[in-house]
Design a protein around this nucleic acid. Sequence first.
DNA 1: CGGGATATTGAGTTAGTTCAACACAGGTGG
DNA 2: CCACCTGTGTTGAACTAACTCAATATCCCG
Lengths: 250, 250
Amino acid sequence: MRKPSYAPKPVPCLRCPLRRRSIFRAFEPSELNFVEWFKTSELIAPKGGNVLLEGAASQHLFTVLEGWGFRHKTLPDGRRQILNYVLPGDFLGLQGPIFKEMQHSVEALTQLRLCVFPRDRLWTLYEKHPALAHDLVWLAMRGEQQADEHLLSVGRRSAAERIAYLFLHLYDRCQALDMLDHGRFKVPFAQMHVADTIGLSLVHTHRAMRQMQARGLFTWSREEIEIHDRAALEELSNYAPAPDEKRPII
Amino acid sequence: MRKPSYAPKPVPCLRCPLRRRSIFRAFEPSELNFVEWFKTSELIAPKGGNVLLEGAASQHLFTVLEGWGFRHKTLPDGRRQILNYVLPGDFLGLQGPIFKEMQHSVEALTQLRLCVFPRDRLWTLYEKHPALAHDLVWLAMRGEQQADEHLLSVGRRSAAERIAYLFLHLYDRCQALDMLDHGRFKVPFAQMHVADTIGLSLVHTHRAMRQMQARGLFTWSREEIEIHDRAALEELSNYAPAPDEKRPII
DNA sequence: CGGGATATTGAGTTAGTTCAACACAGGTGG
DNA sequence: CCACCTGTGTTGAACTAACTCAATATCCCG
């Protein structure tokens, strides 16, 4: 696996293409200035690379600029649970400063481009920018909220229900980030990842997905998912999309 | 179900019996003064009462002073997933101010005694007490971290492994709060709650626990759990206790 | 003492697992 | 250009962990 490397030309936060998207809340000039100072560099993680490792004491915080990844935990015998997917705007690595070590790993599914923040400047954030402190709380709470939702899925839903929920969840996140292409979205992962996300075996996951596709609920071909019958998927999983509000990005 | 009621004699934060325990970090006088002002009253929730309801826009934040409860989500057909247990020192209700509505409910397992904070004073916390802002982030992150751990359990562990993990998790939390009584701790819940926590049926959970008790791993009698073979439970679940550090309480 | 919630146990069923074989695609080196 | 390899998808068949239904026992509360 290739090593992460520094990006040659970091984007200035003032002209950040991601931040411009309408789901993100607008920043005050003073906040933008702070973030510009907070961000010390950019990092490129190659596809398949480990951005963060469980047990490591990470010195850095990251915001995802581009690409897909996933957070996961692994048992000593190799069983893996994917906790969530990582998309642009997501904030990574806070567990490092807060507990001594990361409690999960993050792996890149595509090449990832990340803003890098040193943990020792975090204190300045709390002291000078209460609104950003609130944003941090927001991000942490959203992480917990999504974990709770996932827990309900894995603990109490059937195979088809879990798949329906997962695909709607991903669809809505992609939509919010303007990553949809005529109702389709690229999924840079394999069936194995879906299985490890919903807590079932690869074979069973495959069969459940085949059946759902036969019922016309969606298609998954050439790394793309297209939702055909959203209403049916929503009813199957009892998932109601949250009204999308402005969210913070750091 | 009886309604929650206000406690007749709120404890002043300066003499808070909970805060004195050694796991909680010491507060500066200015922080204590702030919390004293932040706390507007105390609430008593009766056993079985709902402290917070999924979908409701809660106007208040709470710190648990005494008692047990649990956070849970429920599907329309009644399937319930318990997300985590609520113990003294836990902070509740942040989802209200951050998203518009609560995304889960909280139910009391014993009578609960809660400190009540109005959400509109939260802003003062961010502005005047950066260390408390960091504490909020800490609490939110720990919530997510525990949800992740739970997710690994429900997604990838067998019945016995899930039970082993859950009981060690609860044991360690009770120990940190000085709630152990000669290696035993009170569990004010039923088998059904365990089943809804680990994502299995009541009958199967019962049988798995019987087998584990027959193997001498623990005893559960008269609402008390006693861990007999901690090493075996740790090996079974691949759980390693985190070194207990000082934690915040608000 | 009665009734509701909880615990226990048996028996039959099913959703999900494991093992194994094969198909297919893309990428690489000779 | 082909041979090969590795990762991924597909499918069958046997197995089992977990579920459901149902009956009975036990406990606790008022």
